[in-house]
Simulated assay, not measured.
Amino acid sequence: MNWVFRNSDLVLDLVREHLVLSLLPVVIGLVLAVPLGWIANRRGWLRTLTLNAAGFLYTLPSLALFVFLPLILGTRILDAVNVVIAMTVYVLALLVRTVADGLSAVPPRIIDSATAMGYRPVWRFLTVELPVAIPVIVAGLRVAAVSSISLVTVGSVIGFGGLGKLFTEGFQREIPQETITGIVLVLLVALVVDGLLVLGGRLATPWERAGAHR
């Protein structure tokens, strides 16, 4: 704890950096995954194509992405945008399947009822199918967020890893307190974000709580 107090400014800066590098990709990935998941759920062949592509993206080594993205995008190798894009790729790969699974789990009778009431496909998706799929999507979002918080530490090898810097610098300078601080803070950030997502999921689905009290 003495090391943490002596270096509190550094630790707070790294926590802020870690949150940006790990959570911004989650937001971007979710925004992209919702329409892609909807498309994948429309036709069997689209689902196969989309999910296979997502599975392939998830198998790409993170270090390889950090190295090759500057060559593809024309960015500098020591650029935080490489970490954000790499993490977005992984989050998107996870969430596309989650969104597709959540939408496919919506009971057909609910879709038929909304259609019979005159809902157009896009409006029905936004106001009926997507809200009903929220519990499944939130479950996948929790996995994606925690994975991103963990994986972003790898970015420390190119100078942008948030709390991962405490791992590498603590090891290089032989300061175990620094390394332990990094590990503990990554775990705490993951737990807090996971808890907030659970809370957000409950607030977004009040009908689930009402059904549980019956």
Rank of each mutant, 00 (worst) to 15 (best):
A53D: 11
Y90G: 02
E169H: 15
L69F: 00
Y90D: 07
G55V: 02
A64E: 06
L78R: 11
N52I: 10
T98D: 11
I137N: 01
V143F: 09
R47E: 11
V91D: 12
A64M: 08
L151Q: 08
E129P: 01
I111C: 10
N82L: 02
A80T: 02
R42L: 15
V132H: 09
A133F: 03
V143L: 15
P176G: 10
L78H: 12
L141I: 03
T115I: 08
D112C: 07
F160I: 07
S104K: 11
S113F: 06
T75S: 13
F56K: 07
I175A: 03
S156D: 10
E174A: 12
E169Y: 12
I137S: 01
N82F: 00
I111L: 12
T48R: 12
A64R: 07
G162E: 09
V99S: 03
T75V: 02
G44I: 02
S156I: 05
R97Y: 04
T50K: 06
A40R: 05
A133R: 10
V146C: 09
T59N: 09
W123R: 11
V89Y: 13
S150E: 09
G170A: 11
V91M: 09
Y119S: 03
R124L: 10
V91P: 00
V83R: 04
I111F: 04
A54E: 08
L141C: 05
A144G: 06
K165P: 09
G140I: 03
F167V: 00
G162T: 00
L71C: 02
V67W: 12
A100Q: 15
V146M: 07
R120L: 14
T168Q: 14
I110P: 03
P176C: 14
E178P: 02
A40L: 13
E178V: 01
T88Y: 05
P108F: 09
A86Y: 06
W123K: 07
L94P: 00
T153P: 02
L57M: 10
G170N: 13
P107A: 13
G44V: 01
R173Y: 04
I175M: 14
I77R: 12
V132Y: 08
G102Y: 14
L166K: 07
V157K: 06
I137C: 00
V154H: 09
T48C: 11
V157H: 05
F125H: 09
A53Y: 14
L65T: 00
L95W: 07
G164T: 01
I77V: 08
F167W: 05
I134C: 05
D112K: 10
G162C: 02
F66W: 04
E174T: 11
S113W: 04
N41L: 07
A93K: 13
R109G: 06
L151F: 12
R47L: 05
I158W: 12
S150G: 08
S62T: 12
R97M: 12
V83E: 07
I110Y: 06
I110G: 03
L71F: 04
L166R: 13
L73S: 08
V81S: 14
V106C: 13
P176R: 14
G140R: 11
I158D: 13
V81E: 08
L65W: 04
A86F: 04
I77H: 09
V81D: 11
T98C: 09
